[in-house]
């Protein structure tokens, strides 16, 4: 279980630009749960994800993964628990390394890297089998450089790499926002497939309200650094995009509409 325990994050503390990006958020994510986090620009949703990933350290509060306090654990050490897919489809893979070499790096997440062969011949069948599930024909291109792939293909590969070693939580940071609608749809379907097949715990940040309600089993809405909505089950299934929009405007005033929340 992932516990975010009354976490606060402030930027530029003590200056005129002091900005409380996250103002005391608590969130318990149960094993196997898929939480979507929605909010406008500056709502603190991305900050929250970065706090869980370890790219930011909380100023107050704690982050626990399976009852272990990881608040001050470095990002790369925390990566042994976490799979992450970024918004930029090029940032999850190394372009000058081949597909199999990228996968070999992902195979070692959370383990000590030594001087054994990176790509072992016995792993190749496993890589092929995994790549086949992406349905992109990458299983025949093990030796191709990742830089030769399209953005969508690279994002699919990143998803696979994030889940190759089962993470305690899969973090998705608007991971379809930079893709064209058709590719985005494909990546979303792939996400659902990987999450379901591996029974993963996941947290997805998005600013697409439809996505936030249709995907996963729980939706959290952030506004000005606070959690303003946290629904699951029946209550969530009754919720519509219009309801969410109304909630937005109530929280923010009518500015939300002007800010183009659709």
């Amino acid at each position: 279980m992932i516990s975010i325990d009354n976490v606060k994050k402030v930027f530029n503390r003590g200056t005129v630009n002091e900005n409380w990006a996250v103002k005391g958020v608590s969130l318990d994510i149960k094993q196997g749960s898929f939480v979507t986090v929605i909010g406008g620009n500056g709502s603190g949703k991305s900050t929250l994800l970065n706090l869980v990933a370890g790219y930011l350290k909380p100023d107050e509060g704690r982050i626990l993964i399976d009852d272990e306090d990881v608040s001050n654990v470095n990002d790369y050490k925390r990566a042994s628990y976490i799979g992450i897919v970024f918004q930029d489809p090029l940032s999850g893979t190394a372009k000058s390394l081949s597909i199999e070499e990228n996968l070999a790096i992902a195979m070692k997440r959370g383990k000590k890297r030594m001087f054994g062969m990176g790509v072992k011949s016995r792993d190749r069948d496993f890589y092929r089998e995994q790549l086949r599930t992406l349905d992109l024909g990458l299983e025949d291109r093990l030796k191709d450089k990742a830089g030769l792939l399209s953005g969508g293909q690279r994002q699919a590969l990143t998803l696979l790499m994030a889940t190759l070693v089962k993470p305690k939580i899969l973090l998705l940071d608007e991971h379809t926002a930079a893709l064209d609608p058709k590719t985005a749809d494909k990546i979303l379907k792939l996400t659902i497939k990987l999450v379901n097949e591996n029974n993963l715990t996941a947290m997805m940040v998005t600013h697409n309200m439809k996505q936030a309600l249709n995907l996963g089993d729980r939706t959290v809405m952030m506004q000005l650094g606070k959690k303003v909505l946290d629904v699951d089950g029946e209550e969530r299934s009754k919720l519509t995009v219009t309801d969410l929009l109304e909630l937005f405007s109530r929280e923010l005033g009518d500015e939300a509409y002007d800010a183009g929340m659709l």
């Binding site: 990002d75 990566a79 390394l97 070499e101 790096i105 997440r109 990176g118």
Partner: peptide, 26 residues
Amino acid sequence: FFHTEVGLALRATGDNMKMVKAQGAS
């Protein structure tokens, strides 16, 4: 060396540090 586990992570470091950290290597 460039084909060992460390060698791969080293080459990836010169390419994409964000990815290397996300995959748990320093």
